[in-house]
């Protein structure tokens, strides 16, 4: 049985962007972004110029997956927060429910204490959004609604992408 993919509608996407913007501003961070646990970038705000957010998203998911593997080996459920300290920039990574990862990049304009405080609040707001998204997806899957961009895609459309 395949896991259902993540489907994000405009209204939830806006709520996520708004929460990330608030977090980025209040925590005085450089960049805040949300990644799906499989490595897909969901949303990104802040000073993103010059940052390869797609690669960062994939590596973040790999990082969380590897840390989750270590937690299992130690009999822990998970390690919910990771922190990487650099010379100029630091990365704070935390889990949002079972589905997403919140990443905050910050420098000397902020502090780890402030980041932890603000991230904690945002994680709880984002968890609520994701609970709603999951419920919405369950409802759509059970109704077999046909409102997907995929319903009209043909094999030729995919063939054309490669030509």
């Amino acid at each position: 049985m395949l896991n259902p993919g993540l489907v994000l509608y405009e209204e939830d996407s806006k709520l996520i962007d708004k929460e990330l913007q608030k977090l980025n501003q209040l925590s005085r961070s450089k960049v805040s972004f949300l990644v799906d646990k499989d490595g897909q970038l969901i949303s990104c705000v802040g000073e993103t110029n010059g940052i390869d957010t797609t690669s960062l998203a994939s590596l973040t998911a790999g990082n969380i997956a590897a840390t989750g593997g270590m937690a299992k080996l130690l009999g822990e459920k998970e390690f919910s927060i990771l922190f990487h300290e650099g010379e100029k920039d630091n990365i704070h990574i935390s889990l949002v429910g079972q589905r997403a990862i919140l990443v905050v990049i910050f420098d000397e304009r902020s502090s780890l204490g402030l980041i932890r405080l603000r991230v904690k609040r945002s994680v709880s707001a984002l968890t609520e959004v994701f609970d709603r998204v999951t419920k919405k997806m369950d409802k759509i899957n059970s109704e077999e609604d046909g409102d997907s961009p995929l319903t009209e895609i043909t094999e030729d459309d995919i063939e054309n992408l490669f030509s």
Partner: peptide
């Protein structure tokens, strides 16, 4: 797991 984002109008898949 695929990701369909109606806001950015993107479909992502993992191979």
């Amino acid at each position: 797991m695929s990701f369909i984002n109606y806001s950015s109008r993107e479909i992502s898949c993992k191979i």
